[in-house]
């Protein structure tokens, strides 16, 4: 084995090692794939406000509010909101079904974030249109109890 192949081999091994911890995490691709299964079509940006802290001390319980701009009438209302996170072991967070009887398209909950990652929400409207918004949340201590 000459010097070049040793260096090359070490480089390959190092990059494989770097990939390993990520294998257990959802990726932006996994999050996008899941959204592709949850909704049919391409969401456009807008109409959703995602409220969450910029920096969460405790990833085990990060407060999150998803509010969608909608009159919530029989003719024009939000039918579903889906939330995914792109850095958790699996990307799904919650899906809720809503209707005009809700009066206001807003849901609050506390979620787990394994690391600093992006939280993404998609809203489905009665007319079939899809809206998307995302927010980066920095996490000091991860909340998935992987260790």
């Amino acid at each position: 084995m000459d010097r070049r192949s040793i260096i090359l081999g070490a480089g390959v091994a190092a990059s494989l090692l770097a990939l390993l911890p990520k294998a257990a995490r959802a990726t932006p691709q996994a999050a996008a794939d899941l959204l592709g299964k949850l909704v049919k079509g391409t969401p456009q940006p807008g109409r959703i406000r995602l409220l969450a802290p910029d920096i969460a001390d405790n990833g085990a319980a990060v407060p999150l509010t998803v509010a969608v701009e909608s009159p919530m009438t029989d003719a024009d209302h939000v039918t579903a909101i889906h939330v995914v996170a792109d850095g958790n072991p699996s990307p799904g967070v919650i899906s809720v079904r809503l209707g005009p009887h809700n009066g206001k398209a807003e849901v609050s909950l506390r979620i787990r974030l394994a690391a600093s990652e992006k939280v993404i929400a998609v809203a489905e409207m009665k007319d079939g249109s899809l809206w998307i918004a995302s927010r980066d949340v920095a996490v000091t201590v991860g909340g998935c109890g992987a260790n």
Binding site: G92, V93, I94, V96, G103, R112, L113
Partner: peptide
């Protein structure tokens, strides 16, 4: 009458807190 439905994943925190809105008729 059903007015709210949520499908939760493990990414929802322990002691799940969920708040939503409702028109009181």
């Amino acid at each position: 009458r059903p007015v709210f439905e949520a499908a939760l994943e493990p990414a929802v925190s322990a002691n799940p807190y969920i708040a939503f809105f409702l028109r009181a008729t």
